[in-house]
Design a protein around this nucleic acid. Structure first.
Lengths: 351, 351
DNA sequence: TTTTTTTACGCAATCGTTCCCGGTAACGTT
DNA sequence: AACGTTACCGGGAACGATTGCGTAAAAAAA
């Protein structure tokens, strides 16, 4: 079932004009007499004419739309970023099309190819955990196709990027745990290949060192699928808990990991924050409603989306190839709630 | 900055052939000699040729992509539906493009126009709270454009629809509250214009009647923006609580309302489920982690997405105009957790 | 050898739109 | 009267790909 749209040709025929004249009349060209314009515009209105954007895209080689690829839209952080992206995009007359990789490289590439070949004018992306082969990105980038990376960025590709200070976010959170008296702080990390994992773990390690806590590799567990697979988080938690270094707190480095961690502790009857402190990166707006309310490192997601889009539009609308790129680094917010607590007694025992 | 793609013409020129020959060679036509085919295909491979889907869309008037419009992707229910949609769509070689209305009629129309004019081959939609003017949908429908409604459907438009048995879902939940001893059951409802609101409230009312509970219009409050605006839920809750009929339980008819309700009770120190029982429609996967764990009516969201997509593909791929449409009605699931409790003492006092 | 058939390719139209060229009046200027 | 302007409009190519039709050359049949 196809359905027929009305074209400029229909108008031309009906009015005894040429398509050029109709086109010009609709675009309000000075070359067309006011009467003809009026005639054309009114008739177009009447038969409900809308220009065919596909034909326009073909002709103008641009579509006034931008693509966004994230691993999962159900994730609060990403949906907030998308809202930021849409707000700027719509204000500038751009449409936004959204794709999910679900942490799969293949699906990421599928989306990417679909979008680029459909002439999105640019792309905003946070790469999947599986993405190691960057050749397609490099190729696009070298051809001058506008890309902005956010959150999970890649160093090798010269373009604009938007992130938060992951190092500091993690450092502050882990330092807070240490100052509160937690002594064995484990880390539940995302795939080791991601920029955010590296940065956050670096902050974690630095905080341990600065608080004279020993670092222990058995206290760090990675989730290769970023918690997309529930089992994976469970396994990691199980490993963590049966390590000889019984942790008394967990630092989780992603939204899904933080909630997954809490879920595990809850179902296994481990009391938070008494037996185990929990702090993690999360942008869920349900954190206050959780039991216990989660202490989180929160990212300015909406703002990240806005900034990424502004940068992308700069690239798209620039006449000359852009050569100097910037990496915007925003600051995180540490929100202390009920999943961590000050353990005076620990400090006392120590001292 | 545009970037140049390689076209069939480039291949033709490089190989001294015509574009027709190249096209046919790539499509493996019998009219082309094996040697020429090999030549063309290898060269195309080498320079990384991909057919331009825009040009194809223009020519074939179809795009092998379907549009999805929901009010908000951050909502678990909708993101689960979208996952169901994508699973079927990808298996059938269709791409999915997603749009958010954010409960705004204008944004819904913007997305709709964008999608239809970009030649999506069909549309899956749950309408916004603001959508009263259905003329554009009617027009599309009459032109034979394939649409499938789900969740928030409209009666006036003859096409496939996918919903759950909202009446029964609400009826069962409210009956459960009544059987548990709650006597003053209030309803926190979505916009009155939505099909789901009507159906769910009907179930609510029937359950009250069947359990000899009095219905009281002051115990029903509507949120015109479906809880999209936080203030709105707060106001509704405030009104409910200061009504002379002090409710002892709340039935919330949408995801955002259920969590919004819980948030209000929590911040105002009203104990759930003791002072106030809470039950509501919700597909959040964090319900078990909440304090208290939410008793919910859960919809088979993923399955709804799958079914909606199958129906849509039927419409799209049908040769003749489809005349008899079906409305698939799935069943909800009642999950009782900690936000409701059996209040034996109430029963006893009563008796 | 001549005729027919097959093979293998090119031409040109098509999809809807824009825009570069032209072209033709009407009018003004010298 | 001759030329230049200006206003207004149409023809047709172009964007990238497909496809019906035409046809030259080669192969097969007569």
């Amino acid at each position: 079932m196809k359905f027929e749209a009305v074209t400029i040709k229909d108008i031309a025929k009906a009015l005894g004009l040429s398509t050029s004249t109709v086109s010009r009349a609709l675009r309000d060209s000075y070359e067309i007499s006011p009467e003809t314009k009026k005639l054309v515009i009114e008739y177009a209105e009447k038969i409900n004419y809308h220009p065919n954007p596909i034909a326009l895209s073909l002709k103008e080689r641009r579509s006034r739309s931008i693509g966004v690829i994230v691993c999962e839209i159900a994730n609060s952080f990403f949906s907030q970023v998308i809202n930021g992206i849409e707000s700027i995009a719509y204000n500038n007359g751009y449409n936004v099309i959204i794709g999910q990789s679900r942490e799969s490289f293949d699906r990421e590439m599928l989306n990417l190819q679909y979008m680029t070949s459909r002439s999105v004018d640019g792309l905003i992306i946070s790469i999947s955990t599986e993405t190691h082969d960057l050749s397609y990105f490099k190729e696009l980038n070298q051809k001058g196709f506008p890309i902005v990376f956010f959150d999970r960025i890649v160093d090798e590709i010269p373009t604009h990027k938007v992130i938060v200070d992951n190092y500091k976010g993690a450092y502050d959170a882990v330092t807070y745990l240490a100052k509160s008296g937690y002594r064995k702080i484990a880390a539940l990390a995302n795939s080791a290949s991601l920029s955010i994992t590296r940065e956050r773990l670096a902050g974690y390690r630095a905080a341990l060192a600065d608080n004279s806590l020993e670092e222990d590799e058995t206290m760090i567990h990675y989730c290769e699928h970023g918690g997309m697979i529930a089992q994976e988080v469970e396994d990691a938690m199980k490993e963590l808990l049966k390590s000889k270094q019984q942790p008394d707190a967990i630092f989780a480095s992603a939204d899904k990991l933080t909630t997954g961690c809490l879920r595990y502790l809850k179902t296994h009857g481990i009391r938070v924050p008494d037996s185990m402190g929990v702090i993690g990166f999360s942008n869920t707006d349900l954190t206050e409603l959780l039991d216990p309310p989660l202490s989180v490192i929160r990212q300015p997601a909406f703002e990240m989306g806005e900034i990424a889009t502004s940068l992308l539009l700069q690239l798209i609308e620039s006449k000359r190839p852009v050569k100097d790129f910037e990496t915007k680094v925003l600051t995180t917010e540490l929100l202390i709630r009920g999943s961590t607590k000050e353990q005076q007694q620990f400090e006392n025992i120590k001292v």
